[in-house]
């Protein structure tokens, strides 16, 4: 009962935020609303008892990515557009709208074939999940099954993930790292001149 109320409240806030993000023109406000959207999603994950996922969503989605998007806004600063307004769209929205509506309708239709939330007969609960739940405590002695799976049973996958993060860091360093000076005439692109 109380779960339903929390779910409905969080989901309606998510819808309101999504509509606000679409209508908002100021990019700074959009970044802050994205952060709020992530935080509400983290709340939804908590309601679904996925504390680890909620933790990651709150820290990465609401925290770090907002900071990085703000940093990108600061990077793309131009004195012509100091209040960081979104450019008005020049194309008609009907083709993308119809694509999105049809895809969304198909996805919602697809959810009718999915097992209901927390169904013990769901395929994902019948594969390796029972093994982890029954054996992770005697085999690893770690009470948090998520950590046991992540660090021990799927340790090789996690090594791959860490390598991906490391590679991302190297890629960013290669792209915009270092102490290169931006030449003034290169930085002013054609679009700024015309306006």
């Amino acid at each position: 009962m109380i779960d339903n109320i929390v779910d409905i409240t969080l989901l309606s806030f998510l819808v309101i935020l999504a509509l606000a993000i679409i209508r908002m023109r100021s990019l700074f406000a959009v970044v802050m609303l994205f952060s709020g959207f992530s935080f509400l999603s983290a709340g939804l994950f908590v309601v679904m008892d996925a504390a680890d996922v909620a933790f990651t969503e709150a820290a990465v989605g609401a925290g770090i990515s907002s900071v990085l998007m703000l940093a990108t806004l600061a990077l793309t600063y131009s004195s012509k557009n100091a209040d960081k307004e979104e450019k008005p769209t020049t194309h008609k929205p009907w083709l993308p709208l119809s694509v999105v509506v049809i895809t969304g309708a198909l996805l919602i239709y697809g959810t009718y074939d999915l097992p209901s939330f927390g169904d013990p007969e769901a395929p994902s609960q019948l594969h390796v999940a029972p093994y982890y739940l029954e054996n992770s405590m005697p085999e690893t002695g770690v009470p948090n099954v998520v950590t046991a799976v992540l660090a021990s049973y799927r340790g090789f996958d996690t090594l791959g993930e860490v390598t991906v993060i490391f590679t991302a860091g190297i890629a960013v360093l290669l792209l915009i790292g270092g102490r290169r000076r931006v030449k003034p005439n290169v930085k002013k692109n054609g679009g700024d001149r015309e306006a």
Partner: peptide, 23 residues
């Protein structure tokens, strides 16, 4: 890595701002 990415953005932002001021 998070700090490397953040500092890379911050550093480039400073470079852009100073070149803005110069121009």
């Amino acid at each position: 890595v998070m700090l490397i990415i953040f500092f890379a953005f911050a550093e480039r932002g400073q470079a852009v701002l100073s070149s803005n001021a110069e121009s």
